[in-house]
Design a protein around this nucleic acid. Structure first.
Lengths: 229, 229
DNA sequence: ATGTTTTTTTGATTTAGGTCAAGGAAAACG
DNA sequence: CGTTTTCCTTGACCTAAATCAAAAAAACAT
């Protein structure tokens, strides 16, 4: 079966036995979303969770005035919306497709049934949730204990690490989105980027591209030191 | 066995079969801490997690300048330090006893062994982690999208809910600690408390006690509205 | 009690970063 | 293409909250 093969490539299902993959294939549904489309809204009743098979999805909270804080941007192979599968009944945040996106949808009850039968699946899911808690803890730390330049520096270093410490980073999101990830607004981000360029820490010639020129300085910033001007 | 009985009262172990409780009892170790004692530090290697049997423990991150952000304060029956059991190997934050505290300690590998044998235990743990993710998401929202009065209002309402919507709240932490929970400093908290008292929203006659006088106003504040002065 | 330490409050000042406004540059779309 | 829409940048300004300083009030210990 084709779907079983696709499922086997998903980290969450890594190491599962063939028969369990087949069970998963039996309960999964495909769902597609267009760029900008809402996948679910905070508070909406949840009856399952998703795994991205193509495209990008942002998970975010919004203030009454419209400002948004992105909690996470998920891509290929990553699950989202799993929290209400195990607690409560409603999604704790909003999800929207950043690009056209395809997903697998797993209905809650059927999935819980499978978890009861397969400890590896349970452990994989525990690992996913734990990793997410770690990232959230880091985000809380950033928001509370660092200023915007520090958060930006930490984010750039994080991006760099994702690409085996590349010096040249390709932002695959708009700067407005980046601002929403860092917990600030586009104007502030813009100012800080140009300040960091002026300081010789980074270089941002073309759109969606940032080159790290002084990694050491970024590390200092990410650790709470201020820019010396 | 006495320990099995104690374990059966812990929410994480609710609904477990007798024999699984006995397995847990076989791997558990008791650990005690004195007020102010460090239980673990961020980055330290983790080989197990804890459940509080008495006292209080704070989980927090610190900035180089000493400012701290409390992620959570745990009490009786609550587990902490579980994240590295399922991912990575080191604690992502610090833990310190707020009062003298006793804990059960569960070694990592033995516990994972039990999870593999008992889907209910896995599901309970999934539920604990999911609930925690929800709270973290709320904290991120507060830090990023609300100002300090809004965060305080949200916290007071949360406290009230914990006590079946009581009007009289007993803070069991110092105001300095409360400030660290809200992501601010004692001076700011003090000013906001007196402003809210002046506005007639709360009343704070004696130490460690706050009475909600205008719940509606608190709800408005928690939703992002400003105090009308 | 009496002194000592910790917590809380109050005041004066500074500052990071948000708001408002407007122009310019890409990108999306018919 | 040209046009519309979204995105990004820059400037002037404002405000929430941090910092610095110091006193008052509790809590703690002797």
């Amino acid at each position: 079966m084709e779907i079983v093969k696709q499922l086997s490539y998903i980290p969450l299902f890594e190491g599962l036995e063939q028969r369990h993959l087949e069970h998963l294939a039996a309960i999964v549904a495909k769902r597609k979303y267009r760029r900008g489309e809402t996948i679910f809204s905070e508070g909406a009743e949840a009856n399952g969770f998703y795994i991205i098979t193509s495209g990008k999805v942002k998970i975010f909270k919004t203030a009454p005035d419209g400002k948004e804080q992105i909690l996470h941007i998920f891509g290929m192979g990553e699950p989202f919306g799993e929290v209400p599968v195990f607690t409560g009944r409603s999604y704790p945040a909003n999800a929207e497709a950043l690009s056209d996106a395809s997903t697998f949808f797993f209905p809650r009850n059927a999935f819980i049934g499978l978890i009861k039968q397969d400890p590896s699946l349970a452990l994989n899911m525990l690992s996913v949730l734990s990793m997410r808690l770690k990232r959230f803890a880091a985000l809380i730390e950033d928001l509370s204990l660092k200023e915007v330049p520090g958060r930006l520096a930490a984010y750039l270093l994080y991006l760099s690490q994702q690409n085996r410490n590349a010096r040249d980073l390709t932002l695959d999101i708009s700067k407005t989105q980046l601002a929403a990830i860092l917990g600030t607004i586009p104007e502030t981000l813009s100012r800080i980027l140009s300040r960091m360029t002026y300081e010789g820490i980074i270089e941002s010639d073309e759109r969606h591209h940032i080159r790290i020129k002084d990694r050491k300085a970024l590390e200092l910033l990410a650790d709470g030191n201020k820019i010396v001007r």
